[in-house]
Simulated assay, not measured.
Amino acid sequence: MTDINLWDRKSWDAVRRAKGVTYSEISEATGITYKAVTKWFYGERVPSLRNQILMAQCLGIPLTQALKNISDPDIRSAIRSVIL
């Protein structure tokens, strides 16, 4: 799998399209409204870290792959607290 940038909506959309996952499926997996999910993908809003992690799981992206380029210790700590 190529690098997935956790903060780049284009990366998320490329994976979503390749796997045939709909906005509705992401909405269901994250518990967020369909409208909010579409705003994430159109760049009108940024999903919370928690919702980005849920999206990674929904899209079948290993979290280690999605998070490997994050070096900031505070962000890594926050991520660990969300996924543990």
Rank of each mutant, 00 (worst) to 15 (best):
M1D: 11
M1T: 04
D3F: 08
D3C: 00
D3P: 01
D3E: 13
I4N: 13
I4W: 06
I4D: 12
N5H: 05
N5G: 10
W7D: 12
W7H: 02
D8S: 12
D8Q: 04
R9N: 05
R9G: 08
K10E: 15
S11T: 05
S11L: 05
D13R: 13
A14S: 12
V15R: 04
V15E: 05
V15N: 07
R16C: 01
A18M: 11
K19M: 03
K19W: 09
G20H: 07
G20W: 06
G20K: 01
G20F: 00
V21T: 13
V21W: 02
T22L: 04
Y23W: 08
Y23Q: 07
S24E: 14
S24K: 06
E25P: 04
S27K: 03
S27M: 00
E28I: 11
E28N: 00
E28L: 10
A29V: 03
A29P: 07
T30A: 10
T30N: 05
G31A: 02
G31V: 02
G31I: 03
G31W: 10
I32N: 11
T33K: 04
T33E: 05
T33V: 03
Y34T: 00
Y34R: 11
Y34V: 03
Y34Q: 05
K35A: 07
A36S: 06
V37N: 03
T38E: 14
T38I: 14
T38V: 13
K39C: 11
W40R: 04
W40L: 11
W40T: 04
F41I: 10
F41S: 01
F41T: 00
Y42T: 15
Y42I: 03
Y42Q: 14
G43V: 10
R45H: 14
R45T: 14
R45S: 15
V46I: 10
P47Q: 06
P47L: 12
P47Y: 02
S48H: 00
S48F: 11
S48R: 00
L49E: 01
L49V: 11
R50W: 11
R50E: 11
N51A: 04
Q52P: 02
Q52M: 07
Q52I: 04
Q52K: 07
I53A: 09
L54Y: 00
L54C: 06
M55T: 06
A56V: 08
A56F: 12
C58M: 05
G60L: 01
G60Q: 02
G60M: 09
P62S: 13
P62D: 08
L63A: 01
T64M: 02
Q65A: 09
Q65K: 12
A66Y: 06
I70Q: 08
S71F: 13
S71V: 12
D72C: 13
D72A: 15
D72I: 13
P73R: 01
R76G: 10
S77G: 14
A78H: 06
I79M: 11
R80E: 14
R80S: 13
S81C: 07
S81Y: 00
S81H: 12
V82S: 02
V82F: 05
V82T: 09
I83G: 14
I83C: 13
I83H: 05
I83A: 13
L84C: 06
L84V: 06
